[in-house]
């Protein structure tokens, strides 16, 4: 590889990183892509409060096709799940599962605007490729941020004010 190609590759990589960097302004997933149908550790990064006010609650909506959700307990926070009818029932060891976790909530903590924290859940991803979005409601002592916008098909999330957390599903290895 000569010096010029290396340089060009470097600029291209930088552009990719810079773009990803802009998206990091929101509540985002630490690992932005994962193989279809894999078990995935979803780590949600929360980098700020609501206009300076500390975060007191994080609510994650589980998108259709995501199953086997188990949130990780977090010291200082109470974790609860909402169970309901699944939009996409699935087979597990020969049985059809129609109910499951539809929402995960961490509440009762206090995350200052100048601090950073992570909220984790383990889950199984659907067997398909493309994007899936985790809508997140961030409640604070004063106000709330709703990271719930999902771009229309073919549109970029860059133009959205408060996009949901995005995960790209790659083909199964």
């Amino acid at each position: 590889m000569n010096c010029i190609t290396l340089h060009a590759a470097g600029i291209a990589a930088l552009a990719v990183i810079a773009t990803a960097h802009i998206a990091s302004a929101h509540v985002t997933l630490e690992a932005r892509q994962a193989p279809a149908a894999s078990t995935y550790k979803a780590v949600f990064n929360v980098g700020h409060g609501c206009e300076g006010s500390p975060t007191t609650k994080i609510r994650i909506q589980i998108p259709a096709g995501v199953v086997g959700v188990k949130p990780m307990p977090k010291p200082g926070w109470e974790v609860t799940v909402v169970k309901g009818k699944l939009a996409e029932p699935y087979m597990d060891h020969g049985k059809t599962i129609t109910e499951g976790v539809t929402e995960v909530t961490w509440s009762g903590g206090k995350l200052l605007d100048e601090h950073f924290d992570q909220f984790t859940a383990r889950l199984t991803l659907p067997d398909r490729t493309g994007e899936i979005w985790f809508p997140v409601v961030q409640e604070c002592e004063k106000g709330a941020n709703r990271w719930i916008e999902i771009p229309a098909a073919g549109k970029s999330a860059d133009d959205l004010k408060s996009p949901a957390a995005r995960l790209v599903l790659t083909p199964k290895p």
Binding site: L14, I17, A18, H21, S24, A25, T28, G47, E51, F116
Partner: peptide
């Protein structure tokens, strides 16, 4: 690259 990736997650500016 490492430095960029490790940079803190910035918020958008908000009018106070």
């Amino acid at each position: 690259l490492l430095w960029l990736a490790a940079a803190p997650a910035w918020a958008h500016a908000v009018l106070l």
